[in-house]
Deep mutational scan, measured.
Amino acid sequence: DETGKFLVLSLYDYQEKSPREVTMKKGDILTLLNSTNKDWWKVEVNGRQGFVPAAYVKFL
């Protein structure tokens, strides 16, 4: 199980638009929880879990 094993870097600021999403700032290091959807990845940032656009992050 690779859940929570990968870190990704936020390339852009992102403001959550729904309760299922999370806000991140450019340069944030996020824990990747799920990347099965090619468009939206589930991450943990600042103690919160939610989705961010996959195009806004990259693997470290």
Rank of each mutant, 00 (worst) to 15 (best):
54 A>C: 07
35 S>Y: 11
46 N>T: 04
38 K>W: 07
55 A>C: 14
21 E>A: 06
20 R>H: 14
42 K>A: 08
4 G>M: 13
19 P>H: 10
52 V>C: 03
59 F>I: 15
16 E>L: 08
47 G>E: 05
30 L>T: 01
47 G>A: 04
12 Y>N: 10
30 L>H: 02
21 E>Q: 11
11 L>T: 06
41 W>V: 09
19 P>Q: 09
21 E>W: 05
11 L>G: 03
56 Y>I: 06
48 R>S: 06
55 A>T: 11
6 F>Y: 13
34 N>F: 06
48 R>L: 07
25 K>M: 09
5 K>Q: 12
46 N>I: 04
16 E>Y: 05
4 G>A: 13
14 Y>F: 08
50 G>I: 03
47 G>C: 06
10 S>P: 02
13 D>Y: 05
27 G>T: 02
5 K>R: 14
9 L>W: 06
3 T>C: 15
31 T>G: 05
23 T>A: 07
7 L>A: 06
14 Y>M: 02
27 G>Y: 05
46 N>H: 11
5 K>I: 13
40 W>M: 06
31 T>D: 04
40 W>Y: 07
55 A>S: 14
14 Y>D: 02
7 L>I: 09
33 L>S: 02
49 Q>N: 07
22 V>A: 05
11 L>E: 04
39 D>W: 15
6 F>A: 12
6 F>T: 14
15 Q>R: 09
55 A>E: 10
55 A>P: 08
58 K>C: 15
18 S>A: 09
52 V>K: 00
49 Q>D: 06
56 Y>L: 13
59 F>R: 11
13 D>L: 03
13 D>V: 04
58 K>R: 13
43 V>N: 00
33 L>I: 15
6 F>W: 14
18 S>Y: 06
58 K>I: 15
2 E>C: 15
37 N>Y: 08
29 I>V: 12
11 L>Y: 05
38 K>G: 09
5 K>S: 11
58 K>G: 12
39 D>P: 02
7 L>P: 03
8 V>E: 00
30 L>D: 01
53 P>Y: 04
25 K>Q: 10
33 L>E: 01
8 V>N: 01
16 E>K: 14
59 F>Q: 10
44 E>W: 06
28 D>G: 03
23 T>K: 03
18 S>P: 03
55 A>F: 09
37 N>W: 07
43 V>Q: 00
14 Y>Q: 01
29 I>Y: 06
18 S>C: 10
20 R>S: 13
47 G>W: 02
39 D>Y: 15
24 M>I: 14
34 N>W: 07
9 L>H: 04
26 K>L: 05
35 S>Q: 10
13 D>K: 02
20 R>I: 12
2 E>D: 13
17 K>D: 06
44 E>C: 11
34 N>R: 06
40 W>T: 01
50 G>K: 01
44 E>R: 07
13 D>R: 02
26 K>M: 08
18 S>R: 08
47 G>H: 05
1 D>L: 14
29 I>C: 07
10 S>H: 04
36 T>E: 14
33 L>N: 01
22 V>W: 03
55 A>M: 12
24 M>G: 00
38 K>E: 10
24 M>A: 01
16 E>D: 04
49 Q>T: 13
33 L>G: 00
59 F>T: 09
60 L>W: 11
22 V>G: 01
7 L>N: 06
1 D>C: 15
8 V>Y: 09
15 Q>D: 14
12 Y>G: 07
20 R>D: 13
13 D>C: 07
58 K>S: 12
6 F>G: 11
22 V>D: 00
50 G>M: 03
9 L>R: 09
4 G>S: 13
37 N>K: 06
8 V>A: 09
15 Q>T: 14
29 I>M: 07
51 F>D: 03
38 K>Q: 11
28 D>M: 14
25 K>H: 10
20 R>Q: 13
15 Q>N: 13
41 W>S: 02
27 G>C: 08
17 K>W: 04
41 W>E: 00
60 L>T: 07
13 D>H: 05
39 D>V: 14
2 E>P: 14
55 A>H: 12
6 F>K: 12
42 K>S: 07
24 M>Y: 02
4 G>H: 14
2 E>K: 15
20 R>V: 11
27 G>A: 02
56 Y>H: 07
12 Y>C: 15
13 D>S: 08
10 S>W: 07
46 N>Y: 08
41 W>P: 01
31 T>M: 12
3 T>H: 14
48 R>A: 07
47 G>Q: 05
9 L>T: 08
42 K>M: 15
49 Q>F: 08
32 L>K: 00
10 S>L: 07
60 L>K: 05
41 W>I: 08
52 V>L: 05
21 E>K: 05
16 E>R: 12
45 V>L: 15
32 L>I: 07
40 W>A: 01
51 F>N: 03
15 Q>Y: 14
52 V>M: 03
15 Q>L: 12
4 G>E: 13
16 E>S: 15
53 P>W: 05
46 N>R: 10
32 L>Y: 03
11 L>A: 05
34 N>Q: 10
60 L>S: 06
38 K>Y: 07
51 F>C: 12
17 K>T: 12
45 V>S: 10
32 L>M: 04
58 K>E: 12
11 L>R: 05
48 R>C: 06
45 V>H: 13
21 E>M: 06
6 F>H: 13
17 K>R: 13
21 E>V: 05
7 L>S: 07
31 T>F: 12
52 V>Q: 01
39 D>A: 11
7 L>G: 03
45 V>W: 06
6 F>N: 10
23 T>N: 06
40 W>Q: 02
34 N>G: 07
9 L>P: 00
27 G>S: 03
54 A>M: 04
23 T>P: 06
35 S>C: 15
24 M>R: 00
19 P>V: 09
24 M>P: 00
10 S>R: 04
41 W>G: 00
40 W>C: 07
30 L>A: 08
9 L>D: 00
12 Y>E: 11
33 L>W: 05
4 G>C: 15
28 D>I: 05
45 V>I: 15
17 K>Q: 14
17 K>F: 04
15 Q>W: 12
11 L>V: 09
12 Y>M: 14
16 E>W: 06
35 S>T: 11
21 E>C: 07
17 K>G: 08
48 R>Y: 06
3 T>R: 12
16 E>V: 05
37 N>T: 06
49 Q>Y: 08
26 K>Q: 10
54 A>P: 03
59 F>E: 08
48 R>D: 03
26 K>S: 07
19 P>Y: 10
10 S>D: 01
22 V>E: 01
6 F>P: 12
20 R>K: 12
5 K>V: 13
26 K>I: 07
38 K>L: 09
36 T>H: 11
23 T>H: 04
23 T>D: 03
36 T>P: 03
27 G>K: 02
45 V>G: 06
34 N>Y: 06
31 T>R: 13
51 F>M: 08
34 N>C: 13
27 G>N: 06
51 F>L: 09
33 L>Y: 04
59 F>C: 15
56 Y>D: 02
22 V>K: 01
37 N>A: 08
51 F>Q: 02
14 Y>R: 02
51 F>S: 02
44 E>T: 06
27 G>P: 01
7 L>W: 12
15 Q>A: 12
41 W>R: 00
59 F>Y: 10
15 Q>M: 12
52 V>W: 02
32 L>H: 01
18 S>I: 04
15 Q>C: 11
9 L>Q: 11
60 L>V: 11
41 W>K: 01
8 V>L: 15
56 Y>E: 02
43 V>T: 00
22 V>Q: 02
22 V>C: 07
14 Y>E: 02
25 K>E: 06
31 T>P: 08
46 N>Q: 09
54 A>F: 03
53 P>E: 02
26 K>F: 05
12 Y>P: 01
41 W>C: 04
39 D>R: 13
36 T>I: 09
56 Y>A: 10
26 K>V: 08
33 L>P: 00
27 G>Q: 02
48 R>E: 05
8 V>C: 12
46 N>P: 03
58 K>P: 01
19 P>N: 10
20 R>M: 13
23 T>Y: 05
12 Y>D: 07
2 E>Y: 10
24 M>D: 00
33 L>T: 04
35 S>F: 12
25 K>W: 08
22 V>I: 14
39 D>S: 11
17 K>C: 10
15 Q>V: 14
19 P>G: 09
57 V>H: 00
9 L>S: 04
2 E>V: 14
44 E>S: 10
2 E>I: 14
34 N>L: 08
12 Y>F: 13
6 F>Q: 14
23 T>R: 05
29 I>P: 02
16 E>Q: 13
43 V>R: 00
41 W>D: 00
50 G>R: 02
36 T>Y: 10
38 K>D: 10
8 V>W: 07
44 E>G: 05
38 K>N: 11
